[in-house]
């Protein structure tokens, strides 16, 4: 299992990059490791660029703020790259050598220049059809953050997938009071209303995560 890793998640406001980071951090901590998680420090606006950061380690994590030198970058929407909806340009700036990049897209979207940039770093790139998987298994694109998380766990041995699923249940059942921000709280309510019942929401999310996990697990083995 990988111990010390810094992850940068970039997407559009409303896609759930903040929630994804919190769920991952919660899972890591409940597995007995250390983690610190924070969102980008700016105004929250739907469809505006959004970033969040997850640090995890087997020793205390002191470092805070934006992760400037990530080991792993997760891009939740192609527009982050193609339309420059990002705080970080190019999207891979700061990526450590031999780093890993996951992009939510059904097809390749990188320009030659961007691909060359990644090649120079010796980075590994995965395209994940995360929104497609979310639509298929949860019936809503709002579950894209779930499929991205599932896909991450299938690609990298960070934390048991069951621990992540447990963290999702905690997150939406309100068992532990969880407020990422005022705006996120409002989105939570809108997503809850989509499913009528919280348990159904958790079930759908669990399916989405599991399917995405299986998808990348296979992908990883075939590579």
């Amino acid at each position: 299992m990988i111990s010390n890793i810094d992850i940068r998640m970039a997407g559009l406001g409303g896609q759930g990059v903040v929630t994804a980071a919190h769920i991952l951090g919660t899972a890591v901590v409940s597995a007995g490791k250390h983690s610190a998680v924070n969102p980008f420090f700016g105004a929250e606006k739907r469809l505006a660029p959004a970033e969040s950061y997850v640090r995890m380690a087997d020793r205390p994590v002191y470092d805070r703020g934006e992760i400037l030198y990530p080991d792993l970058i997760m891009i939740f929407a192609p527009e982050v790259i193609t339309m420059g909806k990002s705080y970080t340009m190019p999207f891979y700036s700061g990526l450590k050598e031999k780093g890993l990049v996951m992009i939510n897209s059904d097809e390749p979207i990188l320009s030659e220049k961007e691909q060359a940039g990644l090649d120079k770093l010796g980075a590994t790139l995965f395209y994940i059809p995360a929104t497609k998987l979310a639509m298929e298994f949860a019936g809503t694109e709002l579950a894209t953050n779930m499929t991205m998380l599932g896909a991450l766990c299938g690609l990298v041995d960070l934390v048991e997938i069951d621990t992540v699923i447990e963290a999702v249940a905690q997150r939406f059942s309100g068992k532990s009071k969880f407020v990422a921000s005022g705006t996120t709280a409002v989105l939570d309510e809108s997503i809850k209303s989509k499913y009528a019942k919280v348990s159904l929401l958790i079930e759908k999310n669990t399916t989405a995560i599991t399917k995405a996990y299986e998808y990348t697990k296979k992908l990883n083995q075939s590579k």
Partner: peptide
């Protein structure tokens, strides 16, 4: 602010 208020930690 942010470094502490918005960071989730143990």
């Amino acid at each position: 602010g942010f470094f502490t208020t918005h960071t989730r930690e143990i």
